[in-house]
């Protein structure tokens, strides 16, 4: 299995001189499975350069799995050139919207309406199929399996586990572990804590022993204090998840948009220092635009 990062920035693209090393494009990860299936996780602005690179391989077939439909995860989609070219087959998977009761197709078609984009969805030339996934659905692409699990974010967000050969990769999309909304003196406090613990165990079990965990580490623990409920994880919550689930390597991603490359590396240096006495623990990496991993 091969993994390539095309966008590692969170929230909004950051084309600045101090983000050049890690990259300014928003979330997009390309995976080529052992049996040659092309899987794209999220369609942030990183999808645009990926689409450009694919132009010399037309026609293509690929499966795009969207963790959720917030802007930074879908903004590259109308600019994904293969969608405009006949004979390409593009399957898009994601969640339905329970609040407005919309299918994935409705949500994405709306993104290309007149006010937002000059070309309508109906005018795209590729063969496009949309699938609104129920939770824990196994999607089989040849020998490769993709399974989704619901994770906490201010909209339905699926994490995806990709299994190919004997290797496993998990991507969280955006994830903030739920916190207790009650105070310790409230009647519901204990009940709520139990529900949270139960839920976290289900998540750890789901990702147990994966070779690669790619996780949302937008904030430091200090920054998180004033960003509770915004839907993102911290470096420490990612490390805890990686340890609880016994994963091989943890890649930090969804870098905070105001974070410079130097700042990111300073934080990472501290993390390595704090975790150096854990020889059996996971290996840590900062996800970087253009970085490739081979498993």
């Amino acid at each position: 299995m091969k993994i390539k990062f095309w966008g590692v920035r969170g929230s909004i693209a950051t084309p600045k001189d101090n983000t050049l090393r890690y990259g300014g494009n928003t979330t997009c990860i390309e995976i080529i499975s052992d049996d040659g299936k092309r899987i794209i996780l999220d369609a942030g602005t990183g999808l645009f350069p990926l689409g450009q690179q694919l132009l010399n391989q037309m026609p293509i077939q690929c499966s795009i799995f969207l963790t959720h439909t917030h802007w930074d995860h879908i903004q590259g989609l109308p600019f994904f050139t293969p969608l405009f070219i006949p004979n390409n087959i593009i399957n898009i998977y994601g969640s339905f919207d329970p609040v407005c009761n919309k299918s994935l197709k409705d949500i994405l078609t709306q993104q290309m309406e007149y006010c937002y984009f000059p070309v309508r969805e109906a005018e795209l030339k590729a063969t496009i199929q949309y699938t609104s996934l129920p939770e824990k659905q196994v999607t089989k692409l040849g020998e490769t399996k993709v399974t989704n699990i619901l994770l906490n974010h201010p909209v339905l967000n699926y994490g995806y586990k990709i299994e190919s050969g004997n290797k496993k990769v998990f991507f969280t999309g955006d994830l903030e572990f739920p916190y207790n909304i009650y105070e310790p003196e409230d009647d519901s406090y204990e009940d709520y804590n139990n529900l949270i613990n139960q839920r976290n165990e289900i998540i750890y079990d789901f990702i147990r022993d994966v070779d690669v965990l790619i996780a949302d580490s937008a904030y430091t623990t200090e920054e998180y204090k004033s960003r509770k409920g915004w839907g993102h994880g911290t470096f420490d919550t990612c490390i805890n998840m990686a340890k609880q689930a016994n994963v091989g390597s943890l890649y930090f991603t969804h870098h905070e948009p105001t974070r410079s490359d130097d700042n990111l590396e300073d934080i990472f240096k501290d993390i390595l220092e704090e975790n150096k006495d854990n020889p059996n623990g996971p290996n840590y990496f900062l996800a970087k635009e253009g970085m490739e991993i081979e498993l």
Binding site: V99, L150, N152, V155, N157, R199, G229
Partner: peptide, 8 residues
């Protein structure tokens, strides 16, 4: 709320 998220 724990399952679907507070905002949903």
């Amino acid at each position: 709320v724990v399952y679907m998220g507070l905002n949903t």
